[in-house]
């Protein structure tokens, strides 16, 4: 079971007068099969937090531990853009991030392609696929290494509303089936409410302002009363914090 433990996390950029605090004294624990969304306005430190979690940046102070059953957890990533190698086929793009080329691995890649409805597109090049299909390949790639934790950085923000909705459903289904932990960064409160069982609200200046549990059953329909109420609740939090700047 995966665990993320963040203690007294502090991150600053620059020195002297140019000093900017990106994250201020963040304490946090995430365990098990959870879907955690990190929401907040631009500049609230959510990307910085993700970069620290994924090891791209190091904290100024504090500790971050990501473990799974006592050992270091294996992470998977889905980016804002699909980031596929245009000169490799869909299957080879999945194989690119694998440690070996055994038949088992190939079979596993095919299984995840089928999970994102692209089982018959393995021989296509990314350029032959639509944006939504490319992002699906990106999701299949992240799942195909069977990571303990999945980090996703606004993976649906570039897609049209209908495609994004279809992909959210698939993602939820995969999360449910694989029992992975997902840490999902988004600026879309509706998306966060639809997918997560926990929402972390960050405020400008990098403070963790609120930690909201959402215990509604899945799948969640945005038109559903309870889901709409939950969304309104989170948005009200935003307003209270005067975060709805735009």
């Amino acid at each position: 079971m995966a665990e993320i433990r963040i203690k007294n996390l502090h991150k600053e950029f620059g020195v002297g007068a140019d000093k900017v605090v990106a994250l201020e004294d963040v304490n946090l624990e995430i365990t098990g099969h959870s879907f955690v969304s990190i929401v907040g306005p631009s500049g609230c430190g959510k990307s910085t937090l993700l970069n620290i979690l994924t090891g791209i940046e190091t904290p100024t102070n504090g500790t971050v531990e990501i473990t799974s059953d006592g050992h270091v957890a294996a992470p998977g990533y889905v980016f804002q853009a699909a980031r596929l190698l245009p000169w490799r086929t869909v299957t080879d793009n999945l194989m690119f991030v694998q440690d070996d080329r055994s038949d088992d691995t190939k079979e596993r890649c095919q299984r995840y392609l089928e999970m994102v409805q692209l089982g018959d597109k393995g021989d296509k090049f990314p350029g032959e696929l639509s944006g939504g299909m490319q992002q699906r390949v990106g999701i299949a790639r992240a799942f195909s290494i069977e990571p303990d934790v999945l980090f996703m950085d606004e993976p649906f923000s570039h897609l049209d509303a209908i495609t994004a909705r279809a992909l959210r459903r698939e993602l939820h289904h995969m999360w449910d089936e694989t029992k992975k932990m997902v840490v999902f960064v988004t600026h879309d409160v509706g998306e966060a409410v639809e997918l997560s069982n926990r929402i972390l609200v960050f405020a400008k200046g990098g403070r963790l302002e609120d930690d909201i549990q959402i215990d509604l059953p899945f799948p969640r329909d945005p038109a559903d009363d309870e889901v709409a109420v939950a969304k309104a609740h989170v948005l009200r939090k935003f307003e209270e914090l005067d975060l709805l700047a735009s």
Binding site: T54, G55, I56, P75, G76, Y77, F79, A81, R83, L85, F96, V97, R141, I145
Partner: peptide
């Protein structure tokens, strides 16, 4: 962006 992607998936320098 592709090189960063490969790094985060811990793909070797050679590959």
């Amino acid at each position: 962006d592709l090189i960063d992607m490969a790094k985060s998936f811990q793909v070797s320098v050679f590959k």
